[in-house]
């Protein structure tokens, strides 16, 4: 793991995020470490509230106050960015980190043409004349597969379908050739038939531009098709990271195995869908030891006492005492 750190686009080390509240401080992310290489797509999966989106927001410096980074480091292309102030982060957001949001219907400003929004983003980050920026905007629209980009340039968001709007959002994310794109549930709000188009578009753009992508989703199908590696999160902690094939077929962590088992297979009739018993603990009531221990079929006394650290196992990393070969 250490040898590619220097070449990693994004390197998150021991990231902690907390929300100070009236009833004490809630820890939303605890000791999350992950890295993404150029041209690589890292899928981040987990249940709602596991901290997937929070990780993306923390990297972009977009945590809603009073949420704040309370520990760890975020390195982007060899530069530490978690301590930058808002002004400096403005230069990073859009320029070095592109963003794709979940709902394309609401992420564009309804009162401006998509052309105006593209040119705005381009000219904020690149020193281009208005005419050059427009040419680049049209080129981007073409690249993300919008037919007749010259005509569509002057259209308003409401004149596009959901899938087309998500393509516009992707064009906006790509506007300044960022090194990293954080895509937060980019296909969740879309039709199933459109989802595949958007993920393959993302894959293609990532390959063409060498852009690294952090793909946050709860859809294992999207991960299986698109991602190179996958990070599994649970209750604000990282559970397992590894190459997508290994994690899908040979998961090291009981939670990941449960997650995989709960995907219904096509063509096989089952009486009951598989599920992991229980539900994820609330962030202010995380049990001691391994956060997953109350639901884990293989948990032992040690899991209830000590928190397992992520440790290399096989081709990936897993935070489970089973892999440490320790006594349960």
């Amino acid at each position: 793991m250490t040898e590619h750190l220097s070449s990693a686009v994004l390197d998150v080390r021991g990231l902690c995020v907390e929300f100070p509240g009236r009833h004490g401080t809630v820890s939303a992310l605890s000791d999350v470490s992950l890295s993404i290489r150029p041209g690589e797509i890292l899928g981040v999966v987990g249940e709602s509230g596991a901290g997937k989106s929070m990780t993306g927001l923390a990297v972009q410096g977009l945590l809603e106050p009073p949420g704040r980074i309370s520990g760890g480091e975020v390195w982007l292309a060899g530069r530490r960015i978690d301590q930058l102030d808002d002004k400096e982060m403005q230069q990073v957001r859009g320029r070095q980190i592109g963003a794709i949001f979940q709902d394309p219907l609401t992420s564009l400003n309804p009162l401006f043409t998509i052309g105006a929004q593209l040119v705005e983003t381009i000219r904020l980050h690149l020193k281009l004349s208005k005419a050059d920026a427009k040419a680049r905007a049209i080129q981007l629209l073409k690249e993300v597969g919008i037919p007749a980009p010259e005509a569509r340039y002057d259209h308003y968001p409401h004149q596009f379908s959901g899938g087309m709007r998500q393509r516009v959002v992707i064009a906006l994310a790509l506007a300044a050739e960022p090194k990293l794109i954080i895509a937060d549930e980019p296909t969740t709000a879309l039709d199933v038939s459109i989802q595949a188009q958007i993920t393959s578009l993302l894959r293609r753009l990532c390959d063409d531009h060498g852009t690294a992508v952090m793909l946050v989703t709860h859809d294992m199908g999207v991960i299986a098709e698109t991602a190179d590696r996958v990070a599994v999160m649970y209750a604000g902690r990282l559970v397992e990271i590894g190459p997508v094939g290994d994690v899908l077929k040979n998961a090291r962590h009981p939670y990941t195995r449960g997650l995989m088992a709960s995907i219904p297979a096509l063509g096989r009739r089952v009486e009951r869908l598989n599920q992991i018993d229980g539900s994820m603990p609330r962030l202010n009531a995380i049990p001691t030891g391994c956060a997953f221990n109350p639901r884990c079929p293989e948990a032992g006394p040690r899991c209830r006492k000590d928190r397992p650290e992520p440790a290399p196992v096989g081709s990936g990393v897993s935070a489970c005492w089973l892999n440490a070969g320790g006594v349960l």
Partner: peptide
């Protein structure tokens, strides 16, 4: 609070511009 304001921030649009151009017009 709307998504397009958050997205504008994620695009690196400066705060003042978000307030007076994107938000105020809406």
């Amino acid at each position: 609070r709307s998504d397009f304001v958050k997205f504008a921030r994620a695009r690196g649009v400066p705060r003042r511009r978000i307030y007076f151009r994107h938000a105020l017009r809406n």
